[in-house]
Amino acid sequence: MNRKDNMCYKVVEKIPQYLDGEMSEFEIPIFLEHVEHCHKCLEKYEIEKNFKEVVKQKCERKCVNDAMVSSIKNKIQMLLARG
């Protein structure tokens, strides 16, 4: 494995960490610098970024219904009144 491939390997492995917002401030500029200039890594980065966004978007939040909200709040109020 040559130096460039080795760097690509490390960068690709760190894509999830970057997308999850878990990369250290120190690593971010190095990571981005490489991704901006490496076509292959940029492609993989775009695929992963898209994957994460689509998963979130397709599992759109379901909301609790109003009856449940008032039922829970009433129960808590009763418990509070009891002291």
Binding site: C59, R61, K62, C63, V64, M68, V69, I72
Partner: peptide, 10 residues
């Protein structure tokens, strides 16, 4: 509450 409901539902 909505986030919790969604978590529970999923």
């Amino acid at each position: 509450m909505d986030a919790l409901y969604n978590f529970g539902y999923r």
